[in-house]
Amino acid sequence: MITLLAGLFIKNKEDLSNPRVKKAYAALASITGILLNLLLCAAKITIGALNHSIAITTDGFNNLADAGTSILSFLGFKIAVYGGGSVHPFGHGRIEWIMSIFTSCAVVFMGTALAHTAALAITNPQKPLFSAAIVIVLTLSIIVKGYMYFYNKRIARIADSETLKAVAADCISDSAATFAVLSSTIVTHLTSWKIDGYCGILVSLFIIFAGVKSLWEVLGRIMGKAPDENLLQNIIACVKEHPQVAGIYDLMIHDYGFGYFVISMHITGRKEHCERLNRVAEEAAFLLYKKYHCDTFIQVDYLIEDEALAEKTQTIVNSALQKYGDRLAVDHFRLVESGTHIKVIFDLLYPADLQNQEEDIRQEVEKAFTAESDTYLVMIKGVLRRERFRLHG
């Protein structure tokens, strides 16, 4: 069904790298989710009220909550369509992450409220009525939620949407919860056990868990997550296909939501290849723009290939860090031209317990170079690692 709707309502639906196409897919998934959840909600609340089942009614309100979160998500997707301007130059894609926080909190709140209602049903239990309509509605609900899981998971990959990833996970929880309701209804009908309220508690816990998981994932996205490995390798391959590029450093992908990102990096090479390296930077930026609809900023650094100088500067670094033994490591060490100065650039890898000393360590290294000569400019990038390293050059 989603494929058919995409063909009807999404232009250039095959251009999956286009942020606008990603947003169109996400909006379509939200609209479909709103309609399906409202249908399930109406059916379950009606059946639950007619048959005095708190578990089925609770499950129906869960679908109503899902419809509400889909509405909020849809609004977020529509706002995210707007591009950059003077106030928000990188677009509005991150509004989806903010909406995800609200929807996740709403799901947790709804689950808590339904748990309270189910707890009251335990203290004052009623045996629900049983009918074929209950079995049919709940079975169809499990099938529909399973279908929603698959299309939300698929579109979440297309749109790179945290909200749709959370919705897909919620659909699996809903399927499990509805199966529990169906099981309790059958068990209650075949036995004298009044477990309807307990099943309502179980459904509520599923809802709360889904909300907390969704909140945790979107907060992780806001904090900044590692880029997709395939994307990273494609970017590197695009640049390193030119033999004049000796290395790529400080490659960063700045994520602004819905597939729009900004790439920045340093490439190194010999000064004699300066004209070609500048053309490489321009060509790579253009190719990445055409392929990913992103902006790319590439700085060209010219390496100093003097073995004696490299050995001397590494000795200065090793001496400054000697008192820390093998608890620190130096990586990506390089010497770069900077006018009349020499840039000494490297990554400093350190364990978590030395994090509060990072600035002191940096200053110790800088003082060691200042004492040697004022021609050195030291640039150190601290990298937190939890395992121990041996120092190397």
Rank of each mutant, 00 (worst) to 15 (best):
R221Q: 13
R221T: 15
I222P: 03
I222T: 06
G224K: 10
G224E: 11
G224F: 09
K225M: 12
A226H: 09
A226T: 13
A226Y: 07
P227M: 13
D228M: 09
L231H: 04
L231K: 10
L232M: 13
L232W: 08
I235Q: 04
C238L: 03
C238M: 11
E241F: 01
E241N: 11
H242V: 12
P243L: 00
P243E: 13
P243M: 01
Q244V: 07
A246M: 06
G247W: 07
G247C: 08
I248E: 10
D250Q: 12
D250E: 12
L251Q: 08
L251S: 14
D255I: 06
Y256R: 00
Y256T: 05
F258I: 02
G259M: 06
G259F: 07
G259Q: 03
V262E: 14
S264P: 08
M265G: 02
H266R: 01
I267T: 00
T268M: 01
G269P: 02
G269L: 04
R270K: 09
H273F: 04
H273Q: 04
E275H: 00
R276S: 14
R276Y: 07
R276K: 08
L277D: 02
N278F: 10
R279T: 05
A281C: 11
E282G: 00
E283L: 08
L288M: 15
Y289K: 12
K290H: 10
K290M: 11
K290Q: 15
K290R: 14
K291F: 07
Y292N: 03
Y292T: 05
Y292H: 14
Y292F: 15
C294G: 06
D295G: 08
Q299S: 10
V300D: 06
V300I: 15
Y302Q: 05
L303D: 10
I304C: 08
D306P: 11
A308E: 13
L309D: 02
L309K: 05
E311Q: 13
E311T: 14
K312N: 09
K312T: 09
Q314C: 13
T315P: 00
I316W: 05
V317W: 07
N318I: 03
S319R: 12
S319N: 14
S319A: 15
G325R: 11
R327K: 11
R327P: 05
A329C: 10
V330S: 00
D331I: 09
H332M: 09
H332P: 02
H332L: 09
F333L: 10
F333K: 04
F333D: 05
R334V: 10
G339C: 06
G339E: 07
T340D: 12
I342N: 01
V344Y: 01
V344A: 00
D347L: 06
D347A: 04
D347G: 07
L354F: 00
L354S: 00
N356Q: 13
N356I: 07
Q357K: 06
E358W: 06
E359S: 07
D360H: 14
I361E: 04
R362F: 14
R362L: 05
V365T: 08
